[in-house]
Design a protein around this nucleic acid. Structure first.
Lengths: 270, 270
DNA sequence: CGTCCTTTCTGAACGTGTTCAACTTGCGGT
DNA sequence: ACCGCAAGTTGAACACGTTCAGAAAGGACG
C-alpha cells in the first residue's frame, strides 16, 4: 500500500460538468462534546501527519473518524469502504482524504483512543497495588480488556502495523509519540512498585516490558480460543516468570549473563 | 484483502462484443524443465488450494509464477500489477487467476522456493558440524543468506503473513505443510548434534527453535541497517544464549522452572 | 457591496485486484 | 469426420482506494 509511486498517465479529458447540488445541509448541531479547544496542543515537531484544522472543520474531522470507527466495528475493516464512510458521514469521499491521508490513517485514531482507554482502565490497579508482578499483570489485562470488543476487526489491520514501511508500525518515526506514551505506562508499573531491580537493567526495563506487551498483542491477534482466554493464560503464566527473571538479574552469578543480554539488546536497538 | 465478501450488484448490460484476436500464438517450446510428471504427489488432504493442472497447463502455471517472482524482485510487490504479470507472461489477466487464487497466493510460490534454497544452503554445515550452537547458527545464517536478495520486497509482504485470517499466515491450516517442513529443519539441527537436552524439553524444542527463527525474520524485516548486519548480530548474540539455556534446562534446580515454562507453552499452543 | 484569500468540500476519473460469461483447444469416443 | 466435454484461456466489467481540478464558504479589508 504505502510503497505506491502513483504513475499518473493523464488520458481522459471530460470537458463538461453537470454542476448542481449546493450542499445538502445536514443540520449539524452546535453543542460540542466537551474537549477544550485552545488549539495549542500540537506542540513538538513530528506530530501526526496532516492535522489541517483551524475552525469547525475539526468537527467534520471528528465526524468522519467517529463514523469510520463505528463502521469498522460494525462490518469489519475491509468491508468498510471509503465511500460508505463518506456517505454515512454525509460528506464527499474526497473530504475524508482532506483530513486523513489514507484509509489506514484512520486506524491511528483507533490507536490513540485505545491507548487512552488503556491508561484509564489500568489506573485503579496502579493506584492500589505495589507488588511488581501484580501491577504488570493488571496493566496487561487492562490492555486486553480494552482491546477485546474490537478483536474481530483489530486483527485484520494489526497486520499493517507489522509492515516496516508503514507509518503505522509501532517502530516508525510517525508513531514515536504513541510509542513513548505506551512505554511511559510501563515506566509507571515499575516506578510504583517495590521491586528491586538490577540498576543496569532498570533504564531499559520499561521498553522491554512494552516489547513484551507487543508480543502479548501479537498472540492475542492470533488467539482463536473463545473470548481469547488463552491470552489471559499467557499473561498469568508469563508475568511470574518475568517477575522471577527480574529478581534473579540482581544475583552475583547471573550478572555476566544480564550484562551480555543487555549489551546485545542495546546493540540491536537503534 | 482476504476478508472480502464480494457484494455483486449487477448493473450494466453491455450487449455487444467486439470479438477478434484469436490467440497470439507465442510459439512455446516443447522441452520440459525436468520435474517428473506422474501426478501422484498431491497425497494428503489440505494441500495447497487450487492446483488445477493435468497437462502442459502446468507450463503456463510455471510461466506465470516465474514471471511474477521476477517482477516482484525487479519492481517490488506493490508496484507489480496483475496486468503487468499477465502481459509479460503473454497471457490474459484472468488466466493468472485460473492458477492462483489471488495476488497474495503467488507469494506462496516464493515461500516454497525460499525454503528449498534454505535447506540446500544449510546442508553443508549440517553435514560437517556436530556442535549444537554451531549448527543452529549456521542454519539461521543460511536462512538469512537466502532471504537477503529479496529483502526490499519481502518486507512488504511478510505483513500479510502476520494477518491471522490470511492463508499465508505461518500458523494457518493452509500452511501446515510448509510449517512442518520448516520445523523438520530444526529437528535436524538437534538430531545431528551432540547436545544433551532435558528429555521433557526435547520433543518441543524443534518447534521452539522454529518460532525463534520466525522472530529473527521479524527482526530482519524491520532491520534497516546496511546489509541487515544487525540481524547477523542478533543471531550471533542469541545463539549462545539459547545454547546455554538449553544446557541449563537439565540442572536439577531449574527443573521446576523448565516444567512450568513447558506447561505454559503447551497450554498456549492448541 | 465587492474583491481577494485561505480553508473546506465536491465528485468525476484513474489504476488497481478480482470476477465471470463466453470462447478456444485438445482429446477420447463413435 | 463429427460430436461432446472438460481444461484452458480471454477480456470486458465491477468495486475499491485514491487523486485532482475546481466549486463553495467564510472571513478580512476596502
Amino acid at each position: 500500500m504505502s510503497e505506491q509511486t502513483a504513475p499518473r498517465t493523464a488520458a481522459g479529458d471530460s470537458t463538461d460538468r453537470p454542476v448542481d447540488r449546493t450542499g445538502g445541509g445536514t443540520g449539524r448541531g452546535s453543542g460540542g462534546t466537551g474537549r477544550g479547544s485552545g488549539g495549542g496542543d500540537v506542540g513538538g515537531p513530528g506530530t501526526v501527519g496532516p492535522e489541517p484544522s483551524t475552525a469547525r472543520g475539526e468537527q467534520t474531522r471528528q465526524l468522519i473518524l467517529e463514523t469510520a470507527l463505528r463502521l469498522f466495528r460494525e462490518r469489519g475493516y475491509a468491508q468498510t469502504t471509503m465511500r460508505a464512510i463518506a456517505r454515512e458521514a454525509g460528506v464527499a469521499v474526497g473530504n475524508a482524504y482532506y483530513y486523513f491521508e489514507s484509509k489506514e490513517h484512520l486506524i491511528q485514531g483507533f490507536y490513540r483512543r485505545t491507548h487512552a482507554d488503556h491508561v484509564v482502565a489500568a489506573a485503579p490497579a496502579l493506584a492500589a497495588e505495589t507488588d511488581f508482578a501484580a501491577r504488570l499483570r493488571a496493566v496487561l489485562h487492562a490492555g486486553i480488556d480494552v482491546l477485546t470488543p474490537s478483536h474481530a476487526f483489530a486483527a485484520t489491520f494489526f497486520k499493517t502495523a507489522a509492515e516496516p514501511t508503514s507509518p503505522l508500525s509501532p517502530f516508525s518515526a510517525q508513531s514515536s509519540e504513541a510509542r513513548t506514551e505506551a512505554i511511559r505506562l510501563f515506566e509507571e508499573v515499575l516506578a510504583g512498585s517495590t521491586a528491586k531491580v538490577d540498576p543496569q537493567l532498570r533504564p531499559d526495563l520499561p521498553e522491554l516490558l512494552w516489547l513484551g506487551y507487543l508480543g502479548v498483542i501479537l498472540y492475542w491477534v492470533h488467539d482463536r480460543s473463545p473470548d481469547q482466554s488463552k491470552t489471559r493464560l499467557l499473561i498469568d503464566g508469563a508475568v511470574p516468570l518475568v517477575d522471577r527473571l527480574v529478581g534473579l538479574s540482581r544475583l552475583r552469578v547471573l550478572r555476566p549473563v544480564t550484562t551480555q543480554v543487555l549489551e546485545l539488546i542495546r546493540s540491536l536497538r537503534h
